[in-house]
Nucleic acid binder design. Structure first.
Lengths: 208, 208
DNA sequence: TGTTAGTATACCGACGGTCGGTCGATAATG
DNA sequence: CATTATCGACCGACCGTCGGTATACTAACA
């Protein structure tokens, strides 16, 4: 009758299901009862693992941002690649879907989910900006580029790209999003004082 | 016993009260019953004017964005001032508190209000970007500056500044916010290909 | 021109139903 | 037998509905 499971297993079960439902219905619209029904547990069990609905959202946001941060740090600590390549790869780890998870993340934004957007935006900018700054500083030392406001530029870059490419906030078509990406890259070239189209050409290469 | 009022008067009464409460308690935390109690009306009356709580929020967002858009258009259509001055003034109309309303707007962001942020961000970027583009184009014609991606740069500028200076999303101190403003202005100088610190000096003058 | 019947408009508040969250009981585990 | 995990009835707060009512406006008639 009563099914007991390992703590982590059950917890992830709830997390996976909640994420799937948040993605399809949106956080606000999705009820806890729906999650319970889908997982096949009782109310009490849910609240044994999470103390509120919002805590589940936080956990989901963390799962994603942790992955992004980990990847970025791996790139950062790799001594074999030059700063330019590091910068490109770091941005790539945020956008390119090398697995299914990233597409799911896009879905989560679509459902008009303000809270999710704000939470992940904050988490990513706060954690990513310092990593990017280190790459910028590495490039300054190696005379690859120069930069007046490393931290602020990175914050601006991250905030703008995460906000403008979020389908839950702006419903821009693919062309418009590509134009914005091009503009962002050109800004990056300008603030780092590198030759025009240097990053853009590399970006196109990376996309192939 | 029963107090009847003019339609617009009652509607604004509800709007004013709701805004005050959203500002002090936050949109999510504020209940409709609290609004009713404060205004001194019944449930039915509220729903006679608005079909949902969210519709009230939309109306409040519109009230603010409409003012900003109107001011921006006034600046745009003024033939007596040059593009540089137009650009500065337009940005000023968004940030400088020449009346109390703007401070109230800041409060609304503080309460950790994701939905309000997303709604106003969308409204402002969508409406302001095209106006700014016209100013940019005017400057291009008059050979004041040049610009590769007018629309996209303005979208990026607006999205970044509105997001990063929002106390409800990032809790940055005054110094950090000023640094970001400085970085944003320097980006503006770079994307418009004007001399370094041109806008920055004008900005400082405007602040005096 | 004063009266009244009729209509549109603004307003009321009890009620329904949903949903997030609590809690004491209880089954499995070791 | 103690700890851990699970259960589900229950609670209270809240959003939104609905049938009905008071007030203001209009027009027709005396």
């Amino acid at each position: 009758m009563r099914i007991t499971k390992d703590y982590d297993e059950r917890r992830n079960e709830i997390l996976d299901t909640a994420e799937k439902l948040f993605r399809t219905k949106g956080y606000e619209k999705c009820t806890i009862n729906e999650i319970l029904k889908e997982v096949g547990i009782a109310k009490g069990t849910f609240y044994y693992y999470f103390k509120s609905k919002e805590e589940v959202l936080d956990a989901i946001v963390s799962r994603y941002t942790d992955v992004i941060i980990r990847r970025a740090n791996e790139v950062l600590s790799n001594a074999d690649i030059d700063p330019i390549e590091k910068l490109m790869r770091t941005f790539m780890t945020m956008k390119v879907s090398d697995n299914v998870e990233d597409e799911m993340l896009d879905e989560l934004h679509k459902t008009g989910n303000a809270l999710f957007h704000v939470k992940s935006l904050n988490a990513i900018v706060t954690a990513m900006a310092p990593i990017l700054v280190k790459i910028i500083e590495e490039g300054i030392e190696k005379k690859v580029w120069s930069c007046r406001y490393p931290l602020e530029y990175m914050q601006i870059f991250l905030a703008a790209s995460l906000t403008l490419t979020d389908d839950g906030i702006f419903e821009l078509d693919a062309d418009s999003q590509m134009s914005i990406m091009a503009a962002l890259i050109s800004i990056l070239e300008k603030v780092l004082n590198v030759p025009k189209d240097l990053f853009m050409n590399l970006f196109i290469q990376h996309m192939m």
